[in-house]
């Protein structure tokens, strides 16, 4: 079956959804991503949906699941590039995606993932400085 490619960039996983996402494919992405997070011990996951023309209740739920699952596995997830028309439609549909971390574009999403790692890192360096 066709799969959505997952890229490893540094300690982050990158996914750009470029195809019309059918339900099985969305579920496969959810599985693949969680497996991959564990395998490479990724610290973060960035999902670029700037090519997605719709997010309906099913795709929305899959995005929510991915965020919840990666959080359980100790990684942060950020969804970037949602189109205005898609965002307006989601609000009208009544889909609550407030659990998602979002950013305008890939650059800002990456910056966000790095920022989220920093408190832990600086805490570590503080501790080592104290010793």
């Amino acid at each position: 079956m066709e799969r959505i490619p997952i890229l490893l960039v540094g300690e982050f996983l990158l996914v750009s959804i470029q195809v019309d996402l059918h339900d099985r494919l969305a579920l496969a992405l959810q599985d693949d991503l969680t497996t991959e997070v564990v395998k490479v011990r990724a610290k973060g996951v960035l999902i670029d949906i700037s090519s997605l023309e719709i997010v309906d209740s099913f795709i929305g739920r899959v995005l929510g699941n991915i965020a919840a699952l990666t959080a359980m596995l100790g990684a942060n997830a950020v969804v970037v590039g949602m189109r205005p028309a898609v965002a307006i439609t989601i609000v009208e549909l009544g889909l609550d995606l407030s659990c998602l971390r979002t950013a305008i574009n890939v650059d800002q999403g990456m910056a966000m993932l790095r920022l989220l790692l920093r408190p832990v890192a600086s805490q570590g360096s503080d501790e080592s400085a104290e010793k």
């Binding site: 309906d56 099913f58 205005p84 009208e92 549909l93």
Partner: peptide, 17 residues
Amino acid sequence: NLVEQTKMVTAASELGR
């Protein structure tokens, strides 16, 4: 327009599913 398109397609997706 884009918003009308997106709403109609999303509704169709829900009902079709």
